[in-house]
Design a protein around this nucleic acid. Structure first.
Lengths: 224, 224
DNA sequence: GTAATAGTGTCTATGAGACACTATTGG
DNA sequence: CCAATAGTGTCTCATAGACACTATTAC
């Protein structure tokens, strides 16, 4: 064991949300070298007694204050090129979080400041640009065959809100009528709450919450 | 950096192949403690100057002798529970390899012996049982929306061989006529070589090679 | 009433699933 | 000719995509 190199292991988070019809990512301004004052994904070292998933959940909590009954957190991929961190051999396990718009970033730790930035994001520190791109692509793909678009919504939401999530993430227009039919007839996608909300004007919209399905059968297909 | 724990980083490989209508995985018998003489996934430590992908490709080469123009290798996931290795804090980055039947395992390194075992596999060392299960599930899912079933086949193959791959990995029966239509009409899935091969008896079958598509549009759906 | 938003019904085209026969080889 | 395997054609059903009107609210 001692003949092999010593690594540090970090978790980095690609936290995405939909705000004002734009996809946003939570970024921090680095307060320490390297890349001092540069934008980076939030993250940090895995602690001695932590699982990887636990470290990611902790970072998510620290950045948002969310104790995470809402939203979605999953492992994305690991990155470990020998030169990816000038300080030494660091492998990072990236996680992808999909969150409703509510959370306000909380500065702390190495982060001089944190902010939700609309995509496309500025140049990022380390290989975080690549990690972010991988996360966005994963999110786009997963909206097709899972109900995870609901992770971008509050606990109760309207069909229109859900459609706006799809349109934003995919950067595409979806027919409101076909979308309504698809969402309400795919088993386990959403279930009606029974109440309605009215926007400023117009007919009140029914509220739904996420259903029990883990996978969409058949999937929601991206427009060609 | 020094205030945080020191990790070792390994890569472990879930190498799958289809042989005699059964899914097989390459396993090694451990020659050292812990889990001495137990079955485990092949793998090893990442070297000082190696990328993670490079370490996985090297392990694949060492186990099979394959210089890998054929088959498919991709990162699966990382596993880092604090107690997953009794020797210390070890994070492993698991890779998934899909390979044609040809390769014969080569014993070496920590492995007292290596063998292709039909699934379901025996109990494995560490958390390798879980990693294997995740790898098989990933393979099953990827056959739906990618042309990766071809990675289990030699460079040139018949439609029947490809169908047997699907049937084995999915443990399901597929209608030969509908399958033939689906494979030959999905753009970029396969392309005809122009030659035929004849089995012992029967009409000769056309040979195909993998096409240029990265994704199947529309996907090949698993039977309900 | 008017503007604004929610929600529904129909027609068509495409693809999946079920199914039976013809084609080409070795023996 | 027979056995074995490859390959094709048709019908039906489910679902996606295009598209226009009705319903309910605030003002």
């Amino acid at each position: 064991m001692s003949e092999y190199p010593v690594f540090s292991v970090t978790v980095d988070l690609v936290m995405l949300t939909v705000r004002s019809d734009r996809l946003h990512v939570l970024l921090v301004r680095r307060g320490v070298a390297p890349y001092l004052d540069g934008w980076a994904l939030p993250g940090g070292f895995v602690r001695p007694d932590e699982d990887l998933d636990g470290a990611a959940a902790r970072e998510l909590r620290e950045e948002t204050g969310l104790t995470a009954p809402l939203g979605h957190l999953e492992q994305l991929a690991s990155y470990g090129a020998p030169d990816r961190d000038p300080r030494g051999r660091v492998v990072t396990v990236a996680y992808l979080a999909l969150l409703p718009d509510q959370p306000v970033p909380v500065a702390g730790g190495d982060a001089a400041s944190a902010a939700w930035l609309a995509l496309p994001a500025p140049e990022l520190a380390f290989d975080h640009g690549r990690i972010l791109a991988d996360g966005v692509e994963r999110a786009r793909a997963k909206l097709e065959y899972t109900p995870l678009a609901t992770a971008f919504c509050p606990a109760e939401f309207t069909v229109t809100e859900l459609r706006e999530v799809y349109q934003t993430v995919w950067d595409a227009h979806l027919d409101p009528r076909n979308f309504h039919r698809k969402v309400t007839t795919t088993p386990g996608f959403v279930e009606p709450v029974g109440r309605s909300v009215t926007a400023d004007r117009g007919r009140p919209a029914q509220l739904f919450r996420r259903g029990s399905a883990q996978l969409l059968h058949p999937p929601m297909l991206r427009p060609a």
